[in-house]
Write a protein that binds this DNA or RNA. Sequence first.
RNA 1: UGGGGGAUCGUCUAAUGGCAGGACACCGGCCUUUGGAGCCGUGAAUCGGGGUUCGAGUCCCUGUCCCCCAGCCA
Length: 558
Amino acid sequence: MNDEETTGSVNFIQAAVMDDIESGRFDKRVQTRFPPEPNGYLHIGHVKAIAIDHGVAAEFGGEFNLRFDDTNPEKEEQEYVDGQIADMQWLGFEPANIYYASDYFDQLYEWAVELIWQGKAYVDDLSADEMREYRGTLTAPGRNSPYRDRSVEENLDLFARMKAGEFPDGARVLRAKIDMSSGNLNLRDPAMYRIRHAEHQKTGNKWCIYPMYDWAHGQSDSIEGVTHSLCSLEYEDHRPLYDWYLDQLEIYHPRQIEFARLFITHTVLSKRVLIRLVNDGLVEGWDDPRMPTVVGMRRRGVPATAIRAFIDRVGVSKTNSTADIALLDHYIRQELNLTAPRVMGVLDPLKVVITNYPQDRVEMLEAVNNPEDENAGTRQIPFSRELYIDRDDFQETPHRKFYRLAPGAEVRLRYGYFITCTDVVKDASGEIVELHCTYDPETKGGYAPDGRRVKGTIHWLSVAHALTAEVRMYDRLFAAEDPGSYDDFREALNPDSLVIIANAKVEPSLADAEAETVVQFERKGYFCVDSKDSRPGALVFNQTIGLRDSWAKIQGKG
RNA sequence: UGGGGGAUCGUCUAAUGGCAGGACACCGGCCUUUGGAGCCGUGAAUCGGGGUUCGAGUCCCUGUCCCCCAGCCA
């Protein structure tokens, strides 16, 4: 349940939509769209936009569509189109229709011709550098291009020849004729078309001129009948241009409303940086579990419901803000605590011999699959004379608040027996290689009939039955809280964002675990069966997130 | 006097002239066969200065600070 539901409060976008419904501005219709450029994979920042677009449509009984803003063939690829569609599906934000701006190229061309006829668009021969110079600066007005006053006939002819492929890339552009002295630089005769002899993933080689974002976007919204064109804050000063095109053409006119983009601590959502992380091999790919992409989070084991809950909580406003990554972590734990089956996993195995337990005996002990979900049932786990425990669950000279195994100390093996450490076996270099313990046969299941209690409960695995697995311990990709403030983002990286444990041990019940299954290794954290590299017999787990660790806090205080 | 936008606990938000509330984080306690989960509790905010009003986070004036814009990217 989110704030909107509990408090009845509405954000400024919902308020605007309600106003429009009341006034009948769009015949009480609501239609939104998510317009990504297919030049990369979707990240959690996109999810916020999708959630808003989808949410507004759903809340008011409207329609939500996906439209690819595929106007720049040099950057876009079919792989990203497919990937983005799959991501939205996985997130549970299904669009009613999938559209492409490139489907409107013919109509856009006709409208451009119309603008030329109206004397509101012209072909400019200025080079890109010259155009920049003529544009002026933030504080100084620009100057008119010497080609600004070409005749309609000449413009028509030149534009047709641009389309026909008579000119090389960059030779000319079609520009809107607005106002070179406007305080809003977007209105200083913005480019509408540029020449690019490039193959488009959808239209092939049909076109060698491609529309600019501003020229394509509003008109695409108009064609589709979008009512509320929701976008991020940096488009606020594009709105006058969005409106201008629609007004000149006198076509159906949607309303653009802007909201603040999502920023998250220890995270980079800049497309430029994400692409570099991938291309420079700093991560394994777009689906590296450390990436803030949908495919990355999915591979890490983050549930879609957790992402959506996080986005919900962050809210919608016009204030630039940076959400704490801990909030996302919270929702991941909250969801997984309820749903992830518990299992025992030993990350750094230390052998324990129960000296008073019979050599060849094996007992099956009952373990609860999920204490948060009684329907999850129980399972049997094997117990025997030789066990593994995690190395950090033993201290030879224990900290005063260390409630685990130590020489002479008694602890409970989860769902097993009470054991007491009697001997510490070391190798020549002094490293502990084995522990000898005795168990109390009366404490089977973990309860002492005499009512005595132990302070600690630790997890364990039977040596003979444990499966070996690779466990990839993922931590945040960026150590810096605000990686975006670094000149070189590489300096903000966390050198320990991935630590591979090759020889971890897990319960035999995991032998046939399917890809993307997320389990909790008790007392450790949540782990996801890797969808790319895990095989039966060669399991690979990705750490989704650790459990909250109050022992780490105690240690930190000394 | 280029244009556009924004300022509420540490963080993200709520309030629509009427007790500044919640979540996360933090700290403390209880409980515990996960040092998990859960439960209880503490601390913590209206950018500054004026004004209107019985009453201002909200309205008015003024100042300050922050963000975005000079692609033939989106």
